[in-house]
């Protein structure tokens, strides 16, 4: 019993659903708001690429190596492609890979983390052994090795490859949180009420970890954006698709830096950084919301 000023019970916003519960306070946080805005911007660009893009990104009909001009805002490549169009179409692949890898990783992490924590015993030990083995694999190296075997990797393949190395982190964190929640009375009460394991996991435990799950998702997105770009920069994956990573690959291949064609490598680099920052900012926002100490300082 703490003798604190009784915080008003009724004045807090009524929870309409799990969704609003997470999203509304998140949008009140400046960092998260910035992150969401950047993310939505890129999302819109990716969706509206056919409308926004001034030219076909594959066309090689323009004057090669031209600096930015009214006709080509971001100039052209050494082989005469419009970089702005490439940038616009190139938004799709990193977004798809990020969201794909984020979703897959989160699904696996949630499934393994919660079930290991909740059911315990031998089941837990086996799952954690597997998790730990994956955890010590050097991430980027594994991704590179697998990717080099997949010559014509599509976005789903790349997402899968990234997932292989990123799920154990989330699984461990979610397992720890499950163990913590499992000792709470409301879980015991649900057991006494006769709830089965499935409902315990998804109706009692999971809804209390939404912020952790979301933060795991966005962290994976960040990791995926950077990893996918690195792969393509290294020439792995499919370099003939248009993406920020492949723009960078071709820029590098054509010594863009040496010839001073900054318009060729700066925009994709900036875009990758911005999208990564967007995911990071959303993550910081979630952190501040769930960690009261950070929240107070954030004021």
């Amino acid at each position: 019993m703490i003798d604190a000023p009784s915080a008003s019970v009724s004045s807090r916003p009524r929870r309409v659903g799990q969704w609003l519960l997470v999203v509304r306070p998140l949008l009140r946080n400046a960092k998260a708001r910035t992150g969401v805005a950047i993310f939505l911007f890129f999302g819109l660009v990716a969706l509206l690429a056919p409308i926004l893009s001034p030219y076909n990104p594959h066309l090689t009909i323009f004057a090669p190596g031209a600096s930015p001009s009214a006709a080509h805002w971001l100039g052209t490549t050494q082989s005469g492609q419009d970089i702005l169009s490439q940038m616009i179409w190139g938004t799709r692949q990193p977004l798809e890979i990020a969201l794909g890898a984020g979703l897959l990783t989160t699904l696996i992490a949630v499934g393994i983390g919660i079930s290991a924590g909740l059911f315990g015993g031998v089941y837990d030990e086996i799952l954690m052994l597997i998790t730990n083995i994956f955890l010590i694999l050097p991430g980027l190296v594994v991704v590179i090795v697998i990717s080099s075997y997949l010559s014509s990797a599509n976005n789903l393949m790349i997402s899968l490859v990234i997932t292989v190395t990123s799920w154990p982190w989330g699984a461990r964190v979610l397992r720890a949180q499950t163990l913590n929640l499992k000792s709470k009375d409301f879980v015991k009460a649900a057991i006494v009420a006769g709830e089965m394991r499935f409902r315990l996991a998804f109706f009692e435990v999971l809804p209390n970890m939404t912020s952790l799950v979301a933060s795991n998702f966005f962290f994976t997105c960040l990791y995926a954006v950077v990893t996918a770009a690195s792969l393509q920069f290294l020439g792995l994956g499919n370099i003939n698709t248009v993406s920020w990573g492949s723009i960078l690959y071709w820029a590098n291949n054509s010594q863009a830096l040496m010839i001073g064609a900054w318009w060729w490598f700066v925009p994709p680099g900036l875009a990758i950084g911005l999208l990564g920052a967007a995911f990071a900012l959303i993550n910081f926002g979630i952190d501040e919301l769930t960690n009261p100490r950070l929240r107070r300082e954030a004021k």
């Binding site: 929870r15 799990q18 519960l21 709470k184 409301f186 015991k188 009460a189 649900a190 809804p207 209390n208």
Partner: peptide, 10 residues
């Protein structure tokens, strides 16, 4: 504990 025995999301 009436505070921890009810699930906040239900």
């Amino acid at each position: 504990d009436p505070f921890s025995s009810l699930n906040a999301v239900h």
